[in-house]
């Protein structure tokens, strides 16, 4: 029996199994610490296409096909896909999904989109509305720079709090068919705005949202941080991580031992000059599919709270001097024994 917990959370009656996870990443990501984990590394920034935006679509397409392949199903078996990216009007997803010929819900949750997609796909499967559902997101360094910042060849100095948008795409297929990992609950995040306007310090903009979602989750489920092997945020980076620790301490929680951040895992700042860490919809998606999921399946981690974080802003809102609100979506993923 599915159960509503507190005001923002759901506990699934039956686990929603993650049948497969696939990741396609760019060259710089491939050279990072997680390089050996990715299913595919695309060395060409244009991925054989003409524009950055088409390249991002191509990466997303390949991730989707790989996830289908790993799950042993065809595109026609999917009842629906929940997909999103960072481009205006989510075009990277649109052009990919047009080729896949599957019913679609397009999502925008900035860099938290993978959490949003996994939450909705889990609900669809748990509610018996889909036998197979896919969660899929992508981002591309060059298309994001063009969308939100400067042309690539323009010379400027990035602040140390800035993050590096991950080039890559991650996909997961969810179903009630058994596998080694399953979504057992979710906490839907609220938009939290502490009034910060610095889009080059997104970690600080998103940390209050991450804190809010994590606290709410623990209260809704009546759990303590120790009951999780890992609590993994999306792309807070080194600056956001520090702030999250401080904010949680004020709420009486200490997650320093469990905490990891996808943005800090994917790049090595000392060698790759990425400053605070990686970011983008693709960041949490590829790290989840390539690094987190296999560790849950193997049983190394028993229960993980996956909390992708997003900074909700646009080029226009930034230009008009608006604040940068944050959001974080939490998904509980647990190790499952495949045999009864």
């Amino acid at each position: 029996m599915n159960e509503r917990m507190g005001h923002q959370s759901i506990r699934f009656g039956e686990p929603v199994y993650i049948r497969s996870g696939a990741s396609v990443a760019g060259k710089k990501e491939g050279e990072g610490p997680l390089g050996p984990c990715f299913d595919e590394i695309e060395k060409d920034p244009l991925a054989g296409e003409k524009t950055w935006e088409q390249a991002e679509s191509a990466l997303q397409h390949r991730a989707a096909l790989r996830a289908l392949d790993k799950a042993g199903i065809r595109n026609t078996d999917l009842r629906m896909i929940f997909a999103g990216d960072l481009l205006a009007q989510c075009t990277a997803s649109c052009y990919n999904l047009a080729q896949l010929d599957v019913p679609v819900y397009g999502l925008f949750g900035a860099c938290s989109t993978m959490g949003e997609a996994l939450s909705l796909a889990s609900m669809a499967v748990a509610g018996d509305f889909a036998e197979y559902a896919m969660a899929l997101t992508s981002s591309h360094f060059a298309s994001a720079e063009k969308e939100f910042r400067f042309p690539l060849a323009y010379g400027s100095q990035r602040p140390l709090s800035a993050t590096w948008t991950v080039t890559g795409s991650g996909a997961c297929v969810l179903s009630k068919e058994k596998s080694g990992a399953a979504v057992t609950g979710i906490t839907t995040g609220k938009i939290v705005d502490y009034g910060l306007k610095d889009s080059m310090n997104m970690g600080a903009c998103m940390a209050p949202a991450a804190c809010d979602t994590i606290c709410t989750h623990l209260q809704d489920f009546g759990r303590q941080p120790e009951e999780y092997s890992k609590i993994i945020t999306g792309d807070l980076g080194s600056v956001g991580q520090q702030i999250l620790f401080d904010l949680l301490e004020k709420q009486g929680y200490d997650i320093k031992r469990q905490h990891l951040d996808c943005g800090m895992l994917i790049f090595d700042d000392a060698v790759q000059d990425t400053h605070a860490g990686g970011s983008g919809c693709g960041c949490s998606a590829v790290v989840f599919a390539s690094y987190i999921l296999p560790r849950i399946i193997s049983g190394e981690w028993k229960r993980v709270l996956f909390v992708p974080t997003g900074a909700l802003m646009s080029k226009v809102s930034f230009a008009e001097g608006q604040t940068v609100p944050g959001i974080a979506q939490a998904v509980v993923v647990e190790h499952m024994e495949e045999k009864d």
Binding site: Q157, P159, L160, G195, L196, N201, P208, V239, I243, T323
Partner: peptide, 26 residues
Amino acid sequence: QKNVQAREYERYVKKVTPTHSLPVNM
């Protein structure tokens, strides 16, 4: 009250955010 909170948070964030060294940059 919201403004006060925002200013306080901004001040705190400024404190914990690393910056480039000005003399080195100059």
